[in-house]
Design a protein around this nucleic acid. Structure first.
Length: 514
RNA sequence: GGCGGGGUAGCUCAGUUGGUUAGAGCACAGGACUCAUAAGCCUGGGGUCGGUGGUUCGAAUCCACUCCCCGCUACCA
């Protein structure tokens, strides 16, 4: 029987600033998929990390009078801490300053050089020293004989720099063929169309080395050059699998990657450069790249000047990590930009988590505590209504898996929280508080059924709000190993007679004046 | 400018190949209940489906024109 393996990654983050909501969002999305696969019987490998080379870092390090590597150690730590704060289930954390990554990049470079996909040429253009940027012919203006940038107004000069190039131009047609043969390589579809149109217009060769700074991986055959950005950064996805050792178990099990989660801003690099590099190096490209949208604050990009920054660490401190995770997954449409606000966050927490699912757990646990001696009641036969309730979830399992496999997270979470709505209704309709006076056997059955629902909903919510769900499992005396999609079908998992452990309120309601 | 996506209840959005009184959640109003985090359940109000014209027995759904909004249009990640 073939193993069910799943490899998912986040972008590696450039640590020139502190972690923001965009980083948190990418990571949370990836974690939800990783955790789902892990409880669905897959051997899942989840990678995140930091991209630490480049001029910006080199300069910052110098400014702080620090060795670049030492400087990166400090920066990288804040991102590593973020994985803990967000409760990510990542299996590894890669840094582009590690030896394993150097080895991997070196190998890729040599393969590309050998295959003739890399050549030495000249990179030229209008360069502004103060902006540290090259400008296009259309982006500059001639003012009294001196050329200036239209946007910044700073002086530009014609600069020619020796540079290695990757023959990207030769890959246009092969890429188009690849997109056609793998229609879901780029998602969402709207992004795919953008990329395809872009490639159809023809690709230019890509500069892949620089001589203007030194903080990076040197070109093996020419130490004057540093391997530039994407060839360095993207390779992390295979460095972590011990490439170039393609015979080791990690690489054999997990490459090609199943899913790269990225922001739409770096889609092109992942959807064009990355498969081109890999194809040229005779390595299989990943199976899918998903470009999610941006998180906006009150319809606008977050910025210091607008004063609308929502800091993930602050929000987690004030509201809780599961609360933030749930909110971002539920309220932001994956693939589209989404506006978030504290107001919406509070509503979401109160409605879905506190009033709906949290209160469902609370009313049931508390009822059992008071009326069943705190012990899980023993059920009699399930009647039609009981079966309808549990069947509703069981019948949806394959649909839910399909949604996850197609990154339809919003549909997924809506279906799942809907089970909680229906469970509340069941509890209301069957009125166990009346049954306790008239029919205790039936009351016990109803309570057991509702516990089953809580268990099943919990399993499905686990990828999104893992730590809260672990608490529920603990309350129900269920083991971590039983946190598995398969157990939804098992209506006898919960053991009657065991004590329901005392639990605190799972999701506190947020006051308006808070 | 070019290519693409979208304009549906106060807000966020679903609406399959055109077919009976256009849906959900939130918000709002009323009702019955009381196990629970004053939570949950039931009922209700509210939309000329961006505009105009057309195809059709019949269009939010197809066609034309028009007005808005958004994305992409290469080497900062």
């Amino acid at each position: 029987m073939p193993e069910k393996n799943f490899y998912i990654t986040t972008p590696i983050y450039y640590p020139s600033g502190k972690p923001h909501m965009g980083h948190a969002y990418s990571s949370i999305i990836a974690d939800v998929f990783a955790r789902f696969k892990k409880i669905d019987g897959y051997k899942a490998y989840f990678l995140t990390g930091t991209d630490e080379h480049g001029l910006k870092i080199q300069r910052e390090a110098k400014k702080n009078n620090k060795d670049p590597k030492k400087f990166c150690d400090e920066l990288s730590i804040t991102f590593k801490n973020l994985t803990k704060t967000l409760n990510l289930s990542n299996n590894d954390f890669i840094r582009t300053t590690e030896k394993r990554h150097y080895d991997s990049v070196k190998e890729i470079w040599e393969r590309l050089e050998k295959s003739g996909d890399i050549y030495l040429g000249k990179y030229s253009g209008w360069y502004s020293v103060s902006d540290e940027a090259y400008y296009d012919e259309e982006e500059i203006i001639d003012e009294n004989g001196s050329k200036k940038s239209k946007t910044s107004g700073s002086k530009v000069e014609w600069v020619e720099e020796e540079s290695y190039f990757f023959k990207l131009s030769a890959w246009s047609n092969k890429l188009l063929k690849f997109y056609q043969e793998n229609p879901k390589f780029i998602l969402p579809v709207s992004r795919r169309n953008e990329v395809v149109n872009f490639v159809k217009k023809g690709l230019k060769d890509l500069s892949v080395s620089r001589t203007s700074f030194s903080w990076g991986i040197p070109v093996p055959s020419n130490k004057k050059h540093i391997i530039y950005v994407w060839l360095d950064a993207l390779t992390n996805y295979i460095s972590a699998l011990k490439f170039p050792d393609t015979e080791n178990k990690l690489y054999r099990d997990f490459w090609p990657a199943d899913l790269h989660i990225i922001g739409k801003d770096i889609l092109r690099f992942h959807a064009i450069y990355w498969p081109a590099f890999l194809l040229a190096a005779k390595i299989k490209p990943p199976k899918r790249v998903y470009g999610h949208g941006w998180i906006l604050s009150d319809e606008k990009k977050m910025s210091k000047s607008l004063g609308n920054i929502l800091d993930p660490l602050e929000i987690i401190k004030d509201y809780g990590v599961d609360q933030l995770r749930y909110y971002l997954i539920k309220e932001v449409s994956l693939g589209n930009d989404g506006s978030i606000s504290l107001e919406n966050l509070k509503n979401c927490i109160n409605n879905d988590l506190a009033n709906n699912f949290g209160n469902l757990c609370q009313r049931v646990f508390s009822f059992i505590d008071k009326n069943c001696d705190s012990k899980i009641p023993s059920p009699d036969k399930f009647n039609t209504r009981d079966k309808e309730l549990s069947d509703e979830i069981i019948k949806k399992i394959s649909d839910l898996k399909y949604m996850i496999d197609n990154q339809e997270l919003n549909s997924y979470i809506k279906e799942v929280i809907n089970f909680s709505f229906n469970s509340n209704k069941y509890f209301n309709d069957l009125e166990p508080w009346k049954l306790k006076k008239t029919n205790k056997v039936r009351m016990n059955t109803v309570l057991y059924c509702i516990l089953n629902q809580i268990k099943s909903i919990s399993i499905l919510l686990y990828p999104i709000i893992p730590s809260s769900i672990e608490k529920i499992f603990d309350t129900l005396n269920l083991k971590k190993e039983e946190l598995n999609i398969e157990q939804i079908k098992n209506l006898n998992l919960i053991v009657p007679g065991k004590i329901i452990k005392k639990s605190n309120i799972l999701f506190k309601k947020i006051d308006n004046d808070n």
